[in-house]
C-alpha cells in the first residue's frame, strides 16, 4: 500500500512547509512517511519540487506516472511535471501564474492557463483547478493559499486520514494563524468536493 504525492511550484511558495504538514499528518496517523525536499541553488526563484510518500516506500523519488496526487502551486510548474501523475491520479492546481523572468527576458509568452490545465487533464483522471490566492484573499491572510490547496487534497480521499487529522496537522504546524488557515482549508475542501461531484455526473453521462 502506497500513496505518492508530488508537489511542484516556484521557490518561495512554501512548498517545503506544505510537505511538512503532510509529514506531521503521517506521523499522527502512524503511517510510514518519506519526504523529498529541494534545498540550495534550485530554490532561488526556480522550479521547486518536493515529494511526500506514505506506506511501503524506501526512497523519496516518485517514478514517472506513479503519483496519486500532483499538487501544483503554480500552473506552469504543475504542467511541467504532468508526467509524474498516474492515469488514475488527481491534479490539484492553483491557477495564478508567476511569469518566469526568462519568459520576459526572451520576450516570450506565458502559456495560456487553460492549455496548462489541459496538459494535466490529458495525464490524470481528475483536475481540481482554482485560484488559491483568491481564497487566501477571502480569509484575509495571503499565506493561507497553501491551506486551500491542502483542503482540496483532503477532499480527494486519496490520503488515508480523516478531515479532523488534516485540521489538527494544520493546528500543529501553524498554531499562530490556525484560524485563518483552517478557514482556507475548508474553502479548498468545498471546491474539491464540488469538482469531484461534477465529474461524477459527467462520467455517468459518458457511460450512458
Amino acid at each position: 500500500m502506497r500513496t505518492d504525492i508530488f508537489l511542484a511550484g516556484v521557490g518561495g511558495q512554501g512548498i517545503l512547509s506544505f510537505a511538512r504538514v503532510l509529514g506531521v499528518l503521517g506521523l499522527m496517523r502512524k503511517m510510514n512517511v518519506v519526504i523529498g525536499e529541494t534545498h540550495g541553488m534550485a530554490q532561488r526563484g526556480g522550479s521547486v519540487t518536493a515529494t511526500v510518500r506514505y506506506g511501503d516506500v524506501y526512497g523519496s523519488i516518485i517514478g514517472i506516472g506513479k503519483a496519486d496526487l500532483l499538487v501544483g502551486f503554480e500552473p506552469l510548474e504543475a504542467a511541467r511535471y504532468a508526467r509524474i501523475l498516474s492515469p488514475k491520479g488527481t491534479a490539484i492546481v492553483s491557477t495564478s501564474p508567476i511569469v518566469p523572468y526568462s519568459i520576459s527576458a526572451t520576450r516570450g509568452k506565458y502559456p495560456e492557463t487553460q492549455d496548462l490545465i489541459g496538459i494535466l487533464r490529458n495525464r490524470g483522471n481528475m483536475v481540481i483547478a482554482f485560484d488559491a490566492n483568491e481564497i487566501a484573499e477571502k480569509v484575509k491572510f495571503i499565506l493561507t493559499a497553501n491551506s486551500a490547496l491542502l483542503g482540496a487534497v483532503a477532499s480527494t480521499g486519496k490520503i488515508d486520514a480523516q478531515l479532523e487529522d488534516f485540521r489538527s496537522a494544520i493546528k500543529k504546524t501553524v498554531p499562530r494563524k490556525a484560524k485563518e488557515n483552517l478557514a482556507a482549508f475548508d474553502l479548498g475542501y468545498e471546491i474539491g468536493r464540488k469538482v469531484a461531484e461534477e465529474q461524477k455526473i459527467t462520467d455517468s453521462g459518458k457511460k450512458k
Partner: peptide, 17 residues
C-alpha cells in the same frame, strides 16, 4: 530515459532575488 519534467514548456531556472 523519459525526464520527469516536460521539455517543451518554458523553463524556470534559478535567478537572483
Amino acid at each position: 530515459r523519459i525526464p520527469a519534467s516536460a521539455p517543451d514548456l518554458p523553463v524556470r531556472p534559478p535567478i537572483m532575488c
